[in-house]
Amino acid sequence: MMLRAALLGLVLAGPALAQDNPATAARNASAQLEEATLQLQGAQTARDRVKALTETVRAFEAGLGAMRDGLRRAARREGELTQALKAREGEVAELLGVLQTIETSAPPVLMLHPSGPLGSARSAMILAEVTPGLNARARVLRNDLQEVQTLRLLQQNAAQTLETGLAGVQQARSDLSKAIADRTDLPRRFTHDPVRTAILISSTETLDGFASGLSEISDGEIAESNASVMSQKGSLPLPVQGVVLRRFGQADAAGVKRDGVVVAARPRALVSSPTAATIRYRGPLLDLGNVMILEPQSDTLFVLSGLSEVYGEPGQVIPAGTPIGLMGGQIPEIGAILSLSGEASGTDRSETLYIEVREGNRPVDPETWFRTKNNG
């Protein structure tokens, strides 16, 4: 029976699969979500609740992203093994037939060899040399099968982990929105005048026109600022975790070219200020939806559109990393997340953030400012 198991292992083991371990990745993701839950509990009493809740939301987003990736890799690995087994079904059946014949043969017959005793001895020596290797391959197969069982169990238990994580991040986002609304400690460069803002919006038809008239939306003078972020140019993080879909001046499906980049992000993803900046405007604008306009330094504007919710007030000076809003969309149902198998297709990044950078009221390529590689 040991020989039969060894030979069966030789047939089924096949080529080595991916070296990464999706089971470990899924467990690590689960641990991340558990840690984020603990962070959420601690954030309720934190002195700086905005900072604590921001870190908590990011921890939940990272954990949920890692869980999606781990489940995707687990499903892919299981599929590869299943496909390999199916491809070898005929070979396995033939081998089992031969083994069955050998096992039912009378012991004296097994001891005989057409070449006589010398042939029998040589066959025994060959078998003695081959058997350890066959056993090793059988162990590899056994380990792979055990891993598949582990992966299936992880996928079965993932629903509860995801449900807890999704509820946690939803609560953290809600708490963060309230904490930002209650914040009163940020300095201001100007006081926003909503009447003048409404007049400016109604009298302009383009982003160029609105940006050039931003100085008109304040109640009084706008304080001068000597802030400079030139040393960070080219290394700023994207405001949202995502991947660039369309680059500066690149035409979309309708042939329209825009003076910014489009970043694909997950639903309800947190959007943060990439650097310290003044909020020059926030709210609906033209056909751009909710817009956030940040001024990191004099004569430079970061225009972000496509947000569902926006945080903060015009005139406030915010530190780098401050939450400024959330992407729109609906969080996928747990079943949809669990079904994300195969290669990452990006279909889970259904929301888009448009980023435009203006220097001296003229658009420039945002990729001269932002680090756009490996931001997924």
Score class of each variant (00 low, 15 high):
Glu89Lys: 13
Ser30Cys: 05
Gln232Gly: 10
Gly14Gln: 09
Gly42His: 14
Glu55Cys: 00
Gln160Ile: 07
Glu205Gly: 15
Pro117Tyr: 01
Thr191Asp: 01
Tyr311Ala: 06
Gln44Tyr: 12
Leu81Phe: 14
Gly133Val: 06
Gln232Met: 13
Leu236Ile: 06
Gly255Tyr: 05
Arg72Ser: 13
Glu216Trp: 09
Leu64Tyr: 09
Val195Glu: 13
Gly63Arg: 05
Ala211Gln: 11
Pro239Arg: 09
Arg73Asn: 12
Leu326Ile: 05
Pro15Tyr: 08
Glu359Phe: 06
Arg362Glu: 13
Pro194Trp: 09
Gly213Arg: 10
Pro114Asp: 02
Leu10Tyr: 13
Ala158Asp: 05
Leu40Gly: 05
Val92Lys: 12
Arg268Ile: 07
Met1His: 08
Asp193Pro: 02
Ala253Met: 07
Ala136Pro: 00
Gln83Lys: 07
Leu141Met: 02
Leu186Tyr: 09
Ala16Leu: 07
Arg349Cys: 02
Val50Leu: 00
Arg173Tyr: 00
Glu205Asp: 06
Leu186Trp: 10
Glu356Trp: 09
Val243Lys: 05
Gln156Ser: 09
Gln160Glu: 15
Ala13Lys: 11
Thr131Tyr: 12
Leu112Trp: 00
Glu205Cys: 03
Ala265Met: 01
Arg189Asp: 05
Glu333Met: 08
Thr164Gln: 08
Arg88Tyr: 10
Ser339Asn: 12
Asp259Met: 11
Asn374Lys: 14
Arg152Gly: 13
Gln232Val: 06
Ala254Gly: 03
Leu99Glu: 07
Ala75Ile: 01
Val256Thr: 11
Glu359Ala: 03
Val169Cys: 09
Leu85Glu: 15
Pro117Cys: 01
Leu153Lys: 12
Thr82Gly: 03
Ser105Asp: 08
Arg266Val: 01
Glu367Phe: 09
Thr101His: 12
Leu200Met: 15
Leu162Glu: 01
Phe248Trp: 06
Met67Lys: 04
Ser225Gly: 14
Ser341Phe: 01
Gln100Ser: 15
Ala172Tyr: 08
Gln170Lys: 04
Gly321Gln: 03
Ala26Gln: 10
Lys233Gly: 03
Glu55Tyr: 02
Gln232Ala: 13
Ala264His: 10
Thr45Arg: 14
Gln146Leu: 12
Ala26Phe: 09
Leu71His: 05
Ala93Leu: 14
Gly209Val: 04
Val195Asn: 11
Ala198Gln: 15
Asn135Gly: 05
Asp252Lys: 03
Gly335Leu: 00
Glu359His: 04
Ser341Thr: 11
Arg188Met: 12
Val98Gln: 14
Ala336His: 11
Arg371Pro: 06
Arg47Gln: 14
Leu3Glu: 12
Val92His: 05
Pro239Gln: 11
Pro22Ile: 02
